[in-house]
């Protein structure tokens, strides 16, 4: 049995004991929201090699703390990168700079 299933079992047991097992779907819903809020999306213009990627991830963890990081490739940004969470955006793409110039 790995740790994750253990935690899950403990939660279920506690809920059963308290007679509040019917709240489980709601708890899951809230948890999903929390996970989504915590997730970071890193957008790059092209694929990087593993080493560089690790470097970037380490730096992001330094700034934003321990979070799940999803990597997306989008050629439209031309170059650079952007980091997005539900509430914040760090835009360092070439497209972003060009847009700023336009203004």
């Amino acid at each position: 049995m790995n740790e994750e299933t253990k935690i899950a079992q403990i939660i279920i047991e506690v809920l059963k004991k308290k007679g509040e097992i019917h709240l489980l779907p709601k708890i899951l819903e809230e948890l999903k929201k929390e996970i989504k809020r915590e997730k970071l999306v890193l957008v790059l213009a092209r694929k990087f090699d593993q080493e560089t990627l690790e470097k970037i991830k380490r730096k992001l963890k330094e700034i934003f703390g321990e979070r799940e990081i999803k990597i997306e490739i989008d050629k439209e940004i031309i170059g650079g990168f952007s980091v997005k969470s539900t509430d914040h955006l760090l835009d360092a793409t070439v497209r972003g700079i060009l847009n700023k110039m336009k203004k």
Partner: peptide, 17 residues
């Protein structure tokens, strides 16, 4: 010249979807 004078520091912006 415009490009040279351009300051481009990435800023952390508050966004929504």
């Amino acid at each position: 010249k415009d490009l040279e004078n351009l300051e481009w520091k990435p800023e952390r912006e508050e966004i929504g979807e």
